[in-house]
Nucleic acid binder design. Structure first.
Lengths: 218, 218
DNA sequence: CGAGCCCTTGACGTGCATCAACGTGCGTGG
DNA sequence: CCACGCACGTTGATGCACGTCAAGGGCTCG
């Protein structure tokens, strides 16, 4: 945001924002049709999930630092938001943020372009879910996390060159993200490890051994 | 658009627009990073498809009358657009449309909200692809087409009460949309027919026999 | 009439789900 | 201290939904 807003506008924005912190695995209240706030992710990772009536559920998006959370303007956005790791948010009152957008064309423009980017990402994911095999999905997932974690917006997440990092999701969350079962996730990780592409550590640690091989798999 | 723009603005918009018609199954040129126009679908249906390097492809969105086609502002949107049926578009020069949006807050606001809706739809589809079985996918697809075809924006498509209509896609396109194979699509349609939910006619005709049953399947 | 699509139908194969058992680490309470 | 439960992950055996392969039917077009 610093790139598009003037110092004066940034000031105004900051005066009306407040920080919130959440522990891992916590439902973030208020993601309902009448949600009254709006936020930007400062650190951590957030899952947006949708589910069918019988309980099957699917993570439809992962949010990382610099991503927006919440839907201003209008109608229901029917999913839940839950923290995957510890999370810090920068929040605004919804009405207030909408007002700021109306006043400051640059802010609205930024939000619009981000939304277009999100749409593009969602459609990429549609391609993945519809047309990839289990190991392709896992390779894509690992690379996606790696890229987001090293991104400049994520200043405190990891050194740019780190080949080793922690996945922000548990096995069952990965399964929900990739449209698989947890056993399949486990087995495919072993397969990737056997192929020499990665090395799984204790907990959720993972080391990249052969990025090229992973990329070839996607 | 008539709802949000003043008569004067509508006039201005119209003066700078032009109509284009396409036959079925035709690639719509210019959906590339440097696309120089922008359009609204007047009639017909358009497929947006993405594909992997080895040729597997997936339809990531279907556009119906009143939907926007094209990405203003900035970066590449990497997919192709192809007509499914005969299509009529209302086009604008890209630069010109961007200018209009900057001048007329209501237009930009409309576009933003539409984009947010599209994002929501894309995520619903992620849930479908990740977590539904083949017949659930088909039931959902049939209902989706039915609803869009009866929608008020689609004034000339079908009578609101029509239980019989034509699918805008061939079997292999349906397969590409649902992440299935064409044989599976064919068989699942038969299953739905055997269950008394639909009746398949000649060509792409379909009649709904039991909407409730279809809805229960989704 | 034959060529080429699109669609259907059947037989068969396989990737992933399902079911079940077990190991591991961690907190809780006896 | 161990016993216990519990969440999480792994591993193996089995099953099934959907993919794959192959053949054939109906349609349109030259």
């Amino acid at each position: 945001m610093c790139r598009v807003l003037s110092a004066r506008h940034l000031d105004e924005l900051n005066r009306h924002s407040y920080r919130k912190r959440y522990p891992p695995g916590q439902l973030i209240a208020g993601i309902t049709p009448d949600q009254d706030w709006f936020a930007i992710v400062i650190s951590g990772a957030i899952k947006l999930t949708k589910s069918l009536l019988d309980g099957r559920q699917q993570i439809v998006a992962l949010l990382f630092p610099s991503d927006f959370l919440g839907r201003p303007f209008g109608t229901a956005s029917w999913h839940t938001a839950e923290t995957a790791t510890a999370v810090e948010l920068c929040c605004f009152g919804r009405k207030h943020f909408e007002g700021l957008m109306q006043d400051q064309a640059e802010l609205k423009q930024l939000f619009l372009e981000r939304t277009l980017d999100e749409l593009e990402l969602a459609r990429d994911w549609i391609l993945r879910l519809g047309r990839s095999t289990a190991h392709e999905k896992l390779a894509a997932f690992i690379l996606l996390v790696w890229r987001r974690i090293r991104a400049p917006e994520c200043a405190f997440c990891a050194r740019p060159e780190a080949q080793q990092f922690d996945l922000p999701l548990s096995r069952s969350e990965i399964a929900d993200y990739l449209g698989l079962r947890i056993e399949t996730v486990s087995r495919q990780l072993k397969t990737l490890e056997a192929a020499g592409a990665i090395k799984t550590g204790p907990g959720r640690t993972i080391s990249l051994k052969d990025v090229r091989a992973l990329e070839r798999l996607t």
